[in-house]
Nucleic acid binder design. Structure first.
Length: 426
RNA sequence: GGAGAGAUGGCAGAGUGGUCGAUUGCGGCGGUCUUGAAAACCGUUGACUGUUAAAGGUCCGGGGGUUCGAAUCCCUCUCUCUCCGCCA
């Protein structure tokens, strides 16, 4: 959620930046400002009336204390006076409620403003490739896609998942299950070595948490919703982990807060179909290790670079061909100010798969979360939040299987061998 | 699932209808003392809104009600604790 203060002060700048994100409904900005002016007027009227009421009530209290007949009569008179004030308050408070609700609804409909270096553009093709490995693997035509390798070595069973739950819920078996665990441990250990504190959060969150990180109201349809208890299955560990710091006022000395967590992630992915969802490409449940940082606004972009470097280090250790994209305004997520996507090359499918997304949300989430720090002047200021996948498992597995297939089986990268305990899947 | 008790500031814990944004203790911060530290002593210490600054307003788990006036009374929801039942 954008800060109302910024919208008030710099409406033109806000509109221009929204346009870069292809949010062109600029009348919303004007509407927010006009509602804000109305709100202030009504609020100040209500406050005046409340102030009058408070004073009269105090007076009544004092009069009644004396127990003198004339004072009691006076008190009764004042009670009548207050009745009229109360009616006025009731009317104005109703107005105020309507105005505030309208303003809130408009405010939460605005996406975050993109950073200056975000490229112009609307679609994936407009993303700026800031790094790409020199050699993209070129496998022989006989190379198998990962879903066939999964069947060949009996390590991932998609059909069985359909039986148990439905499409998009694979069952990992044997060396496939071990590989999964190995990757999770490897990613966690790397993050812990980089100073992140590990947490294991709940896999379901309440409405407040889903709102805090921006999933609600914007992406309601993408989460599994447990209606009986009003819980949402987490689409990413970002939600519970970042919400640990909801309603918190940090000291500056606590920056940066660094957390890492492994969780399964649940996504409804309504409307997806075809080659896009084949095999491990897009699942309803997948595993992910997520890194989250909370940082001083002056340092958040430096931190974003650190997080990008961390993810890059993981891909290097896994010996996977990757590229890094700086997302264009139209392709970025709702709440992000700057996002780098990491894509790995899936050599048998001959396509790039997104395996990580690292973003700086600036104060967009913290405004909703009321996540602040006390600055040197004792003023409470919104902190910046960042997060990134480090890494998302399923697509990494897809690339590992495809790119590393040999006549002897699937080769495990050196960095992973201590975790798998085997060098080949066969 | 059944029965009961409770939810107050960073924490502990007073407050049952009026000057209570809230006694007090701990913690935090600043100071005196000290070579330094501890102890002791003194002072200070919630958030939001609003404003040039203020005044004013709001907040005692959430929502609603009674009242001139609610932390305090009533209703309701959520959560926590204790006992019983069930159980990894």
């Amino acid at each position: 959620m954008l800060q109302i203060d910024l919208i008030r002060r710099e409406p033109a700048v806000v509109k221009a930046k929204l346009a870069k994100k292809h949010f062109t409904n600029t009348e919303v900005v004007d509407e927010i400002i006009s509602l804000d002016q109305k709100r202030k007027l009504v609020k100040s009227d209500v406050d005046d009336l409340l102030s009058q009421r408070n004073n009269i009530s105090k007076e009544i209290g004092n009069l009644l204390k004396t127990k003198l007949p004339e004072d009691i009569a006076k008190a009764e008179q004042l009670k009548n006076e207050i009745a009229a004030i109360k009616d006025k308050i009731a009317v104005l408070e109703k107005d105020l409620e309507i105005i505030e609700l309208a303003q809130f609804n408009h405010l939460v409909s605005l996406p975050n403003l993109p950073a200056d270096i975000v490229p112009e553009g609307r679609f994936a093709e407009d993303n700026l490739c800031v790094f790409c490995v020199e050699e993209i693997p070129n496998l022989p035509e006989t190379a198998l896609p990962h879903w066939e390798l999964a069947a060949k070595y009996d390590i991932i069973d998609f059909e069985l998942g359909v039986k148990l739950t439905g499409a998009g819920f694979p069952v990992y078996k044997k060396q496939g299950a071990k590989l999964q665990r190995a990757l999770i441990s490897f990613f966690l250990d790397e993050a812990i070595a980089a100073g992140y504190v590990e947490v294991i959060p709940p896999l379901m969150v309440n409405k407040d948490s889903a709102f805090g990180t921006g999933q609600l109201p914007d992406k309601e349809g993408q989460m599994y919703h447990i209606t009986e208890d009003e819980f949402y299955m987490i689409p990413t560990a970002e939600v519970p982990i970042t919400n640990i710091y909801r309603d918190i006022i940090l000291k500056e000395s606590q920056f940066p807060v660094k957390m890492v967590g492994y969780t399964p992630c649940f996504r409804r992915e309504a409307g997806s179909y075809g080659a896009d969802v084949r095999g491990l490409n897009r699942l309803h449940q997948f595993d992910k290790v997520e890194i989250v940082q909370i940082q001083h606004p002056d340092k958040s972009y430096e931190t974003l670079d650190n997080m990008v470097a961390h993810v890059e280090g993981l891909l290097k250790k896994l010996e996977l061909p990757y590229r890094i994209l700086r997302l264009c305004g139209g392709d970025m997520s709702f709440g992000s100010a700057l996002t780098y996507d990491f894509e790995c090359y899936s050599a048998a499918q001959k396509r790039w798969l997104e395996v990580s997304s690292v973003s700086n949300f600036e104060s967009f989430q913290s405004n909703r979360l009321k996540l602040r720090y006390k600055d040197a002047n004792g003023k409470n200021v919104l902190a910046h939040t960042l997060n990134g996948s480090a890494l998302a498992l399923a697509r990494i597995v897809a690339c590992l299987l495809e790119n590393n297939q040999t006549e002897n089986g699937i080769r495990i990268p050196d960095a992973l061998k201590p975790y798998t305990g085997f060098e080949y899947i066969h």
